[in-house]
């Protein structure tokens, strides 16, 4: 369970406040979606939760299964069960995808006091999981995300998620840059990981991803806060009417 309470965040280098009191609880096994216009603070929330530099938390807390995330290094958050699927997965030339995956899996196992996987064991698991995501052996051998298409990069993110088995997954605009088929493949990958114990926070601009990954709860974020929360039908309202009405109702000027 992820409990975000009164989270206030500003940019470290500038006097710019991005998050102005976010309150959000994602219960164990649930899928929550956050929608919102550009500049509402959605991506910042995902970065702050996963520990990226450049942000200063001025107030509030974020507990993952009772543990304060905000005081941990990014790698410790990962070991605690948090996973962020990047909007723009990073290319790392010269580091094989397989090496990267094994390093990550074993680093987490080590941090949790588990035994590291042998090369053979690892290979077996990764091949199996890659297959369901239609990731071929060639893609596993190539350097991390180098030369991958937009769809391949996102599938690679889901493969990492599948390998690392986090308890709390954040998907930051995973649908961006994907065609319908690629989106379905990614959504299937995510849905396969829904097991009633794993929680998801799906950040998106559009409702269409939520056709494939059905949320339990939908939040609308604007101006650094959650301004409205509802069921899956809220996403449909946004899809039909846009954000303007909701923003107006909350007295927020429309973002540029």
């Amino acid at each position: 369970m992820l409990e975000i309470k009164n989270l206030h965040v500003k940019l470290e280098e500038q006097d710019k406040v991005i998050l102005k009191g976010v309150n959000l609880t994602v219960e164990t096994g649930k899928v929550h979606a956050i929608m919102g216009p550009n500049g509402s603070g959605k991506s910042t929330l995902s970065y702050v939760l996963s520990g990226r530099d450049g942000y200063e938390v001025t107030d509030g807390s974020a507990l993952l299964d009772g543990e304060e995330l905000l005081e941990m290094e990014p790698e410790a958050r990962a070991a605690a069960g948090l996973f962020l699927a990047f909007q723009y997965p990073v290319e790392i030339p010269g580091v094989g995808n397989m090496t990267f995956l094994r390093t990550a899996v074993n680093a987490q196992r080590k941090a949790r006091g588990q035994e590291e996987l042998s090369a053979g064991e690892f290979l077996k698991v990764v091949r199996e999981k890659a297959k369901t995501l239609k990731i071929d052996a060639e893609m596993l051998k190539r350097p991390v995300n180098v030369g991958f298409s937009g769809g391949e990069k996102k599938r690679n993110e889901i493969l990492q998620m599948a390998m690392l088995e986090p308890t709390m997954c954040i998907l930051d605009e995973t649908d961006s840059g994907l065609d319908v088929d690629a989106m379905r493949l990614v959504a299937d990958g995510v849905n396969a990981l829904r097991d009633g114990k794993r929680s998801f926070l799906v950040i998106t601009h559009y409702q269409r991803l939520l056709d494939h990954i059905k949320p339990d709860v939908v939040h609308i974020m604007a101006d650094g806060r959650i301004i409205q929360t509802g069921g899956p039908e809220l996403a449909l309202v946004v899809e039909q009417n846009g954000y303007a009405e909701i923003l107006k109702a909350h007295g927020i000027a429309e973002a540029v």
Binding site: G51, E75, A78, I92, P93, A104, A111, P143
Partner: peptide, 26 residues
Amino acid sequence: ALFYLRSRGVPVEEAKALLVLSFLAD
């Protein structure tokens, strides 16, 4: 890239080493 690796649970020094090897790969 460093954050990306750390967000996957790779400790910072190990992540730096991987990125140095990445830099030297060519």
